[in-house]
């Protein structure tokens, strides 16, 4: 078993699951929605990136030929289309599953059902329109590998890990310093106090859904460097994102990051162990999450919090 390679693989998975889990966690704590349509956002972003990249391929080839610029342009188009589509789909979820029902009784359950319906409908729509065939996205980071301290790292792994770290860092920084970010954090911590501070839930929820949608879009692009885009490709990331968000203690961003790292490494390790292998990955993950939640029903989040409630 290749320990160092497993480490890198685990970090790669952690990056992608982390993007999903943080989105789910932020959505739950700020607007009280468990977004079952996060998987649909994932799939839609993948298809949008595929459509945009195949439409722009001849244009880019004509403009830049086979230069390095062409690669950058292709990467820009793919990522831009995926992230934009994710944000747009987030806005659709806001319009369908938040705006009409957010002040009705039992909103968490209602929104769970509505977003689940959006998820199922979107997957069927994608199946009907694009067919079940999977599509490959252009390789953003190229083929090949390099070595750091004797560890072989594939370009797409390094790209996924680094771009996730950068994007997440930027998002968390934005949440910390900007005024909108302050409002979102206030809403995450105490919705009642937030409205008393003149923060409108309706107008703050829109950037939240768009931001989390964009994160799911980025996750879709990054995961599609390893697997293909298909209508159901969002299902597994959704399940893993949800369980990681639960493991981290729904609503805790540091908890979600820690959960993603643990689950990513667990998946990589179980998959690499000769007597277990890939088919035991989900089994081991759920066993682990259930064990943690039995011992600590609030998840990991409380351990990382600096303050008392």
């Amino acid at each position: 078993m290749d320990i160092l390679g497993t480490l890198i693989h685990g970090l790669n998975l952690a990056a992608i699951y982390g993007l999903m889990a943080i989105g789910i966690s932020i959505l739950w704590s700020s607007i009280g929605m468990i977004n079952m349509a996060h998987g649909a956002t994932f799939a839609v972003s993948g298809y949008a990136a595929w459509l945009a990249s195949s439409a722009m391929k001849p244009v880019i080839a004509a403009a830049f030929g086979k230069t390095l610029m062409a690669k950058f342009a292709m990467a820009g188009v793919t990522v831009g289309a995926g992230v934009t589509a994710g944000a747009m789909f987030g806005a659709i979820i806001y319009l369908l599953a938040f705006l009409p029902i957010h002040d009705k009784p039992n909103y968490p359950v209602r929104s769970l059902i509505v977003t689940l319906a959006i998820n199922l409908a979107t997957v069927q729509l994608l199946l009907w329109y694009f067919g079940p065939r999977s599509r490959g996205l252009p390789k953003l980071f190229g083929f090949g590998k390099f070595e750091v301290l004797g560890i072989p790292i594939r370009y797409d792994q390094a790209g996924a890990i680094i771009s996730t770290a950068v994007i997440l860092g930027l998002v968390l920084l934005w949440l910390k310093v900007s005024r909108k970010g302050l409002e979102i954090r206030a809403m995450m911590q105490n919705p009642e106090g937030a409205v008393l501070s003149g923060i409108s839930v309706r107008w703050t929820a829109l950037p939240v859904t768009m931001l989390t949608g964009a994160l799911a879009g980025l996750a879709a692009i990054l995961l599609s460097q390893t697997i293909f885009v298909s209508p159901t490709s969002g299902a597994l990331p959704l399940i893993k994102g949800l369980t990681i968000a639960l493991l981290g203690g729904l609503g805790s961003v540091p908890g979600a990051v820690a959960g993603a790292v643990i689950i990513g490494f667990l998946e990589a390790t179980v998959g690499a162990l000769p007597f277990l292998g890939q088919r035991y990955v989900l089994f081991a993950q759920f066993l682990f999450i259930i064990t943690v939640l039995i011992i600590r029903p609030r998840g990991l989040g409380g351990l990382l919090d600096e303050t008392r409630e």
Partner: peptide, 27 residues
């Protein structure tokens, strides 16, 4: 819809300190 109109009312000039520690612990 409790709270739906609250932010608009607050912006009309009402400031309320809720009972207890209804605050943002992580800020």
């Amino acid at each position: 819809g409790p709270g739906r109109r609250t932010s608009a009312i607050v912006r009309k000039g009402m400031a309320m300190t809720p009972q207890g520690d209804a605050i943002f612990p992580g800020l």
